[in-house]
């Protein structure tokens, strides 16, 4: 999952040696929370822009039929799906299982949370995914509610072999000064921190046509310098965490390492 090192773009044809090589492992990032308004769509957006910024494609799914903010932001790559219908489930799950080396990102609507995880357990999704060289990763979004840690434990118990990143968005679901104590109530997952954003800078994120990946490469000249700096300072550690995740997984997968 670390292409882009040769500097070639996704549209460039592979050379002969690459054609013979099987596609790298495909990751499925499931951004989720049992409760709404805790930053799930933001994480899906950040992940998507991370892949775009590193000149890689992705396939996105927005499971919120009412406010498909994520799908609207990436209209060519992400689509709106209805997980309540069997056809919608087929559209998502069957696509997730395509071992094409491309990352899949799901922005899971909180009201589809139970249904989705029940479904993937019932149909044996994880086992099938692994047999196809597809690796699911859950980004469970913590929130200050009492029910959140127990939901995280239930999920960890239901899918014990799936890596879960305990994601906490300090802007959308602030824990306050007792952050560490409250996070200690969750299963001992690795953590992913999405920092809080100044309100003014946060407003700059709202336009649907603002691409964070393009912003990093070529910030819009009309944007205030302060806002630019604020956004960059916010994005950099988040993308660094994504990169760290990828590097760790690559090292873990490296069979030539003792």
């Amino acid at each position: 999952m670390l292409p882009g090192r040769d500097g070639r773009g996704p549209g460039d044809p592979p050379d002969d040696a690459e054609e013979a090589r099987p596609p790298p492992r495909s990751y499925v990032f499931i951004c989720c929370a049992p409760h709404g308004r805790v930053g799930v769509s933001t994480t899906a957006r950040l992940l998507s822009d991370y892949f775009l910024a590193s000149r890689r494609g992705f396939v996105g799914f927005d499971a919120d039929p009412h406010e498909p903010d994520y799908a609207q932001r990436f209209s060519g790559r992400a689509r709106n799906v209805d997980l309540n219908s069997t056809q919608g489930q087929i559209d998502v799950i069957d696509r997730l299982l395509v071992p094409d080396g491309e990352a899949k990102i799901i922005d899971l609507w909180s009201r589809s949370y139970d249904r989705f995880f029940t479904l993937i357990q019932d149909i044996g999704f994880v086992e099938e995914a692994r047999s196809q060289n597809v690796e699911p990763v859950i980004l469970f979004h913590a929130d200050p509610s009492q029910a959140s840690p127990s939901a995280a434990y239930q999920l960890a118990q239901a899918l014990p072999t799936v890596e879960t990143l305990l994601t906490y968005n300090e802007g959308a679901a602030p824990f306050g000064p007792q952050l560490q104590d409250k996070l200690a109530l969750y299963p001992p997952h690795r953590r992913l921190k999405i920092g809080a954003l100044d309100a003014l800078v946060g407003r700059a994120l709202q336009p649907l046509d603002l691409s964070l990946s393009y912003f990093l490469l070529d910030p819009p000249s009309e944007m205030s310098l302060v806002v630019r700096a604020g956004l960059k300072a916010w994005l950099t550690p988040i993308f660094a965490q994504f990169r760290a995740f990828e590097m760790r997984r690559a090292l873990e997968d490296a069979s030539w390492l003792i």
């Binding site: 069997t86 489930q89 087929i90 799950i93 069957d94 299982l97 479904l119 019932d122 149909i123 044996g124 999704f125 099938e128």
Partner: peptide, 11 residues
């Protein structure tokens, strides 16, 4: 056949 549908039948 769709994996989802096969999964439903298997379950």
């Amino acid at each position: 056949s769709s994996f989802v549908l096969r999964g439903y039948v298997r379950t």
